[in-house]
Design a protein around this nucleic acid. Structure first.
Lengths: 196, 196
DNA sequence: CAGCTTATTGACACATCGCCAATAGTGTTC
DNA sequence: GAACACTATTGGCGATGTGTCAATAAGCTG
């Protein structure tokens, strides 16, 4: 039997990439650690050695899937609210359409929603997105819990709308953009003031 | 061993109620058919006999959890859009707060989101809710696919907002009401026209 | 009470998972 | 180049969960 011995970091990275591919295409229960090990050309025990339990591996996968480049989010236009809203919506749609499959699989929690740890990882990513939205609309300074909650709700709207666009294909990007922009403006002007 | 022999309907109902309780309090993977059988005072094989596979049982549970009395939805006020929006939002918040735990567990898909069959059941419930919203705002006559998609997105917003309210507790019912009403009015007036 | 229908059981076969002692690459030293 | 040490990697054991099915017995009927 020919074994190949790799640096721990390299092996871990290789197994993780295989896991990302599998968990991105099938729900959690339909991916066995045996599948991951086989596709990685490795004994199943090695997967546990590097990642602990199967759920731990899945958590790593979701973390990677939801990690998003927030560089372009730095330079936001200084215009009025509608322009700012357009800008943040465009950024969101760009990100989501680029990583569509993996991103949608992760936010849909491909078969592990409801689990406390998985929820925590998703919630953290949603928090990051919500913080970006709040900064974009000029309310990013020390937001109250209620305000952050409302913004997370808006991110939920964005996720669902993206699904209608990218998975169901019943909406055009233009329609999605209009919907998310108008909703954001309306919420900022009328609902958010109630949550200062 | 004392066996008790019940009518198939009665036994099925009893097992289902136990399953609803368990799946409502723990994620899918944390509930074994052995748990259901034990709590029902029954052999594990009987669960499979009545419901087939474990996932089939779960589908039944989700179906029941998402079945909602849509009686009060029949008599909707005839006023202007803001009043109609207030009305449908109130109806939604009443329903959701009444069945909060089970309803949230189901929409969160307690550990099986991403699975095709489970998604189908949830999607159907969302469709029903979306149809109610469309009727409430006076656009229920033969809506286009795009319009129905936008309305499903709005239902997604409502679900996420309800979670911030009932699970996280960072929003009051008043705040939720304002948020959902203003978002609905804005979407109907500005986004929906793009999807006739 | 005997007999029949069928609700219910118990066990078998199979899959998956976490764990750990044993194995064998790979670089180091003499 | 051979012996060695370090550790990445393997393979198998035990436990748990699931679906299936022939065997069993509960309860009605004559």
């Amino acid at each position: 039997m020919r074994r190949r011995r790799l640096e721990p970091d390299a092996r871990r990275e290789q197994i993780l990439s295989v896991a990302i591919r599998l968990f991105g295409s099938k729900p959690y229960a339909d991916v066995s650690t045996t599948d991951v090990a086989r596709d990685a050309g490795v004994a199943r025990g090695l997967v546990n050695h590097y990642f602990g339990t199967k759920k731990d591996l899945y958590l790593e996968v979701v973390r990677v899937m939801l990690t998003v480049p927030e560089v372009a989010l730095e330079q936001l236009p200084e215009g009025e609210l509608p322009e700012r809203a357009d800008s943040i919506v465009s950024w969101f749609l760009d990100v989501v359409s680029r990583h569509s499959t993996s991103w949608l699989a992760a936010t849909g929690a491909g078969g592990m929603a409801g689990d406390a740890d998985v929820n925590a990882v998703i919630a953290e990513a949603v928090d990051v997105a919500a913080a970006g939205v709040l900064r974009a609309v000029g309310m990013g300074e020390d937001p109250s819990p209620a305000l952050r909650g409302m913004t997370r709700s808006y991110v939920g709207l964005a996720i669902w709308t993206a699904q209608e666009w990218l998975q169901r294909g019943v909406l055009t990007r233009e329609q999605v953009h209009v919907l998310l922009s108008t909703a954001l403006v309306a919420m900022v002007e009328q609902a958010f003031p109630q949550a200062v």
